[in-house]
Design a protein around this nucleic acid. Structure first.
Length: 447
RNA sequence: UCCCUGAUAGCUCAAUGGUAGAGCAUCCGGCUGUUAACCGGAGGGUUGUAGGUUCGAGUCCUACUCGGGGAGCCA
């Protein structure tokens, strides 16, 4: 019999079942393959918490009974170190005290590998200790919950765009030069005598893809070599970047709202147990409905001044500014029409006010800061050539990009959403480093 | 790059300038319903590195190394 693990059941009569599906198997004989998560014992009883990757199930072994059928096994189970791998077999029965709602009455067990003393214990550990052992840390409950929610967010993002007629057209990771030239890039050797840079944004390519396919998105890792050292920064993170031909700033602002509402709804629908593990206040997520508040940059500046922050028109928002603005609302806020001087060279100017760019940032609630940045792109080639010169960018490197304006330029717009920041907000996680399986951080690339 | 902060048992932490301690983990023993299970016992240390002050330094001073938090920039 084929199983979800791709292995056939070794013992007739026991169906191999993923722990998460055990509640539907009450009264049946099952086999669970996993690792010993924790054990409690009271002499003739062992309570074995076994995790199989999908969930954790408690198996109860009664010494005298087990001794009759499998002599010596009970004692071995009582001495089995945490994270030893084992296969358990037994009958599923309802157990309201268990988080899963069921437990297994142990009838047989196979110890696959006895683990060495496991470094991550039930007590607290420092971030340094855990990050050093990220490859083991991801076995624990909260990391499991966070990464399962992250995976659901990623699926929601793809479903959202696929269902709305966007084509997935990925941008390259090796790029010949800076996309924006404003931030530091990771330089790598690209075979002989050639340097390449790891992508810090797929956007310029997404614009080309949009001119080819209309509505597109790219989704991949992004690399920033800035020496940022905060709970909102990673060297390597994932970003989805939709781009639409014949679209305006207003169109992408609606798209931002719809995407975020869609993601939150998907997590609320399918990841309630994980949110509970993380002790997330679900009411705050349930409040995430359209429409989101919209704030003109100049109004945001007024708000900050009214709140007593030393902010001058023309500047970019710092972390305290973002927190103050988003603190006014119970859902993400869209701040639009920033000064062009603080935005990228390709941003389209506001026809109503030439000092402004038709851009929009989405600030997550509860102080999680910017999760989206985007806007409408400049269409006029002469304007772009002027901006490239002003930003002191090498024009040759952008000739292909200027071709998009030479051959059928159209109004278009798009944005980028950061997966880890979104995950941190939805999970209520303090630091984005827990929102990616293997974080790449300033001064830490291990494991 | 700048500011703040930390490094003591495997882990998390304590110790007025005067014999280095606890909880957990580990090992041994006990317990039929545990939920970070609990109870009893045992082993476990060149106090990050180098130098200095002192009769005496985990503690005070200097430098270095490696972390953590934050700023700027950004998603």
């Amino acid at each position: 019999m084929e199983t979800s693990h791709g292995m056939s059941s070794a013992d007739g009569g026991y169906e191999v079942v993923a722990a998460e599906h055990l509640p539907a198997k009450v009264g049946q004989k099952v086999e669970v393959r996993g690792w010993l998560y924790n054990r409690r014992s009271s002499g003739k009883l062992h309570f074995l918490e076994v995790r199989d990757g999908t969930s954790i199930v408690q198996a109860v072994a009664y010494g005298p009974d087990l001794e009759k059928t499998h002599p010596g096994l009970f004692e071995k189970l009582g001495a089995l170190p945490q994270e030893s791998s084992l296969i358990i077999r037994g009958a599923v029965k309802a157990s309201p005290k268990q988080a899963l709602g069921v437990e297994i009455g142990l009838e047989a067990a196979e110890i696959v590998a006895v683990a060495e003393p496991y470094p991550i214990t039930k007590k607290e550990h420092s971030p340094e200790f855990l990050l050093e052992r990220r490859h083991l840390w991801i076995r624990s409950k909260m990391q499991h919950a966070t990464l399962r929610i992250r995976a659901r967010i990623i699926k929601a993002i793809r479903d959202f765009f696929d269902e709305r007629g966007f084509l997935c057209v990925d941008s390259p990771i090796f790029t010949p030069s800076a996309c924006e030239g404003t931030t530091d890039l990771f330089e790598v050797d690209y075979l002989e005598d050639t340097k390449a840079y790891l992508s810090q944004s797929g956007q310029l390519y997404a614009e080309a893809s949009a001119m080819a396919f209309g509505k597109v998105y790219c989704f991949g890792p992004t690399f920033r070599a800035e020496k940022s050292k905060t709970r909102r920064h990673l060297r390597e993170f994932w970003m989805v970047e939709p781009e639409m031909a014949y679209a305006t700033l207003d169109d992408v602002m609606v798209l931002m709202e719809e995407l975020i509402v869609f993601i939150v709804a998907a997590v609320l629908k399918d990841r309630r147990p994980e949110l509970a593990v993380l002790e997330r206040d679900v009411k705050k997520l349930e409040a995430i409905q359209r429409p989101f508040p919209r704030l003109h940059y100049s109004d945001a500046v007024e708000l900050l001044k009214k709140k007593g922050l030393p902010f001058e028109w023309g500047g970019d928002f710092g972390a305290p500014d973002e927190a103050t603005i988003s603190g006014e609302y119970d859902r993400p806020v869209l701040v639009h029409r920033f000064p062009a001087a603080i935005k990228a060279f390709y941003a389209k100017r506001d026809p109503q006010d030439d000092r402004l760019a038709l851009g929009c940032d989405c600030l997550a609630p509860e102080g999680y800061g910017e999760i989206i940045g985007g806007g409408e792109r400049a269409t006029d080639i002469a304007f772009l050539e002027k901006m490239i010169a002003e930003h002191k960018l090498p024009k040759e490197a952008f000739e292909w990009y200027l071709d998009l304006r030479r051959y059928g330029s159209v109004p278009h717009a798009g944005f980028g959403l950061g997966v880890e920041r979104t995950t941190a907000w939805i999970c209520g996680t303090h630091h984005v480093r827990e929102c990616i399986p293997y974080p790449r951080m300033l001064y830490r690339i291990v494991p």
